[in-house]
Amino acid sequence: MIEIREITKAYDGLRAVDEVSMTIKSGEIVAVVGTSGSGKTTLLRMINRLVEPTSGAILIDGRDNRDLPGHELRRAIGYAIQGYGLFPHRTVAENIATVPKLLGWDRKRIDARVDELLALFHLEPAQFRARMPHELSGGQQQRIGVARALAAEPAVLLMDEPFGALDPIIRGKAQDDLIDIQRRFATTIVLVTHGIEEAIRLGDRIAVMDKGKLLQFATPAEIIAHPATDFVAELVGSDERAFRMLSLTPVSDLMEPGEAPGAPIDASASLKDALSEALWSGRRALPVLRDGAIVGRVTRDSLISRAGRPQ
């Protein structure tokens, strides 16, 4: 659990982060979203003390994060950034092994961990261990960056626009990977992004920041349905919110018994995808597929009624 208590960072009297308080639960993904200059990166960097706050405090699992020297604190917290920051003079394996080595793990354990992480990120260990960072594609570099952040099994992972430089298809894949890994290790993730789409897709809860202030901290559904301020409403986008709402729920939630013609849709697909398919193919209902068998249907009318503002 990360408790942020009235944290403030001022540069020359200007408050980059202004009395922000929030509590992040263990094992959840919190997406911090805002425009550039909103203070979201500064807030993130105060958690691992790359930036020291002007006032306020941050508690991680009940301990003030100033109890340890900054560098020791950072070894216990994963950190992945937009440019990846891979060390260009070190191999992929050496990059991933950075923190375990700093912590003095023995060689065997480090090697095992490196291979485990490479496999986890779909990179064949034998093939990638000895590569240099410049020999990797952007997507591969990104994965190594995250693998390095996770190497010492941190309970908390901080991510600053980790997918910013990827093209849309690879980004989607990387986001899926992140969700898988988070479920597997139950890592607490704080992720900074400027895209509301990404925040809705990844965040269990979303923190919206503007001009250093925390405007709203709530679940995606709550943010879409009841934006706290005009700024949040604008960020969510009034012309898109019906579809954003649908994108939060899987088809299985709205499934009913019955049959329908045509190609089925997967139960884990989002309601947004289902509605889009129903409209496009001109069908009143779609069959729903789970584990290779048709298990029910989802109707267009139920989808449309689900898109309205929740009462």
Binding site: Y11, A16, S36, G37, S38, G39, K40, T41, T42, R45, V51, I81, Q82, D160, E161, G164, V192, H194
Partner: peptide
């Protein structure tokens, strides 16, 4: 989009 990171680092220094 480079984010606010580097600019904020520099202003910190």
């Amino acid at each position: 989009m480079t984010g606010a990171g580097p600019a904020e680092t520099m202003s910190a220094q």
